[in-house]
């Protein structure tokens, strides 16, 4: 029986009176590669903001590693403490441009661990090695390519050995080879570090290559209209909208 890591129960997300999505419920199990998919403007990135504590839902509960994250009196301090178990890779890497790659990765380690400077240096080197950027410690984000920025962003997301990593459109702006390499890297990280992955994407190649579970958000009904393994969903699509999406509009 798979163990749940993230549970979302009857969540409604809104900007003021404008409801973005309603009655969203799903469970992300440990070591899942969970895909949040849907067309443009369906609220995928907004949902990710809610899951990572940046935006408060209008209604509903989020249970994060067995503890309440949203709902039932959970405070910001509770969420901050839980978010230390999470890493986030933003769409453009979101590296701090005034710091070198090493300083970007060292910051969370300096902030939240009592390790010595040489130990932090070794850990920074390891994280960069893991994403294939060994030796790039002293480079600034402006000096590396877009794909490298994403990998460096992933190294920073992995700095504190998170139990879960959230990815916001990791393949956006990458060529097919870099995109495939990033998918492989995500799988290696998941397999070797036993990390749970939650990914917002609409890249079909990535969805089928690495997704083990998924939800499909529909912009029209503003809710989840399909759940399950993406490959299974392609074989037996539960509705026309999803079939249309998964076949790039060919069916």
């Amino acid at each position: 029986m798979p163990e749940a890591f993230l549970e979302i129960k009857e969540m409604t997300v809104a900007y003021g009176d404008n409801v973005i999505m309603k009655d969203v419920s799903f469970t992300v199990n440990k070591e899942d590669v969970f895909i949040i998919m849907g067309g443009s403007g369906c609220g995928k990135s907004t949902l990710l903001s809610v899951l990572t504590g940046l935006k408060q839902p209008a209604k509903g509960t989020e249970i994060f590693d067995g503890k309440v994250f949203w709902g039932n009196g959970a405070t910001k301090d509770d969420r901050d403490a839980l978010m230390r178990k999470a890493g986030i890779l933003y769409q453009s890497g979101a590296l701090w441009s005034s710091m070198t790659l090493a300083e970007n990765i060292a910051l969370p380690l300096e902030q939240y661990t009592k390790l010595s400077k040489p130990e932090i240096r070794d850990l920074v080197a390891l994280k960069l090695d893991l994403v294939g950027l060994g030796g790039f410690q002293d480079y600034y984000p402006a000096e590396i390519s877009g794909g490298m920025k994403k990998r460096a962003g992933l190294a920073r997301a992995l700095a504190l050995d998170p139990k879960i990593v959230f990815f916001d459109e990791p393949s956006a702006g990458l060529d097919p080879i870099s995109s495939k390499n990033l998918d492989d890297l995500i799988l290696q990280i998941k397999d070797n570090l036993h990390t749970t992955i939650v990914m917002v994407t609409h890249e079909l190649a990535s969805i089928f290559a690495i997704g083990t579970n998924s939800i499909f958000l529909d912009a029209q009904t503003k809710t989840v209209i399909a759940k399950g393994n993406p490959t299974d969903l392609l074989k037996n699509p539960p509705n026309k909208t999803l079939e249309h999406f998964l076949t790039r509009g060919e069916k």
Binding site: D129, L133, G134, G135, D138, Q188, N192, L193, H194
Partner: peptide, 18 residues
């Protein structure tokens, strides 16, 4: 168990020499 694959991954790409 689990150390070897991580070491393999860490050493899989040769260090970049600036």
């Amino acid at each position: 168990k689990g150390i070897d694959p991580l070491l393999d991954l860490a050493f899989s790409v040769p260090e970049h020499v600036s």
